[in-house]
Amino acid sequence: MNIFRLAGDMTHLASVLVLLLKIHTIKSCAGVSLKTQELYALVFATRYLDIFTDFISLYNTVMKLIFLGSSFSIVWYIRRHKIVRRSYDKDQDTFRHYFLVLPCLLLALVIHEKFTFREVMWAFSLYLEAVAILPQLVLLQRTRNIDNLTGQYVFLLGAYRALYILNWIYRYFTEPHFVHWITWIAGLVQTLLYADFFYYYFESWKNNVKLQLPA
């Protein structure tokens, strides 16, 4: 565990907590894409298939449980909570799941480390995570008024990805045989998707104006 990895995990955790806090305390999910949240739930469910079979560390197990629990509870809140569900922008959140899920599944069937169920699911979860933010970014672009918490949520997620890249660079130089092409390329693509958002996020911060993405 290096400092980049830890900082990355902590920003990831913070992003999830910011979102849960927003939904739980304000009882509103305005500007939050249910599609993205459902894709994340699927990402964690397919990636953490090893949770009860391969023990890595207590930290690892606890974090996995947190990410699984939080992603499914966010989905539950938006779909089922009697107050929160009313604030869901259903008509704006129109991205189709299968546009992302099917290509990722096909890619995972072709490109994986080993042709076993768990390895294919693992590759699938990496490809899907790379693009899972897209419905959220599209929704942000359509929402004229992005509230601070939603903006911070996306910013923290982007920061988490950027820190993971630093973590891989560090591990590449400090650990023998640390080469993971699938993880790296999927992670790089994922981080690049945030570039545009980051640009507008910093501009709005620098000029002290409300964040708004151009249509």
Partner: peptide
């Protein structure tokens, strides 16, 4: 070393 080596990330 762990069977799932390198898959120790989240």
């Amino acid at each position: 070393r762990h069977f799932y080596s390198g898959k120790d990330e989240l």
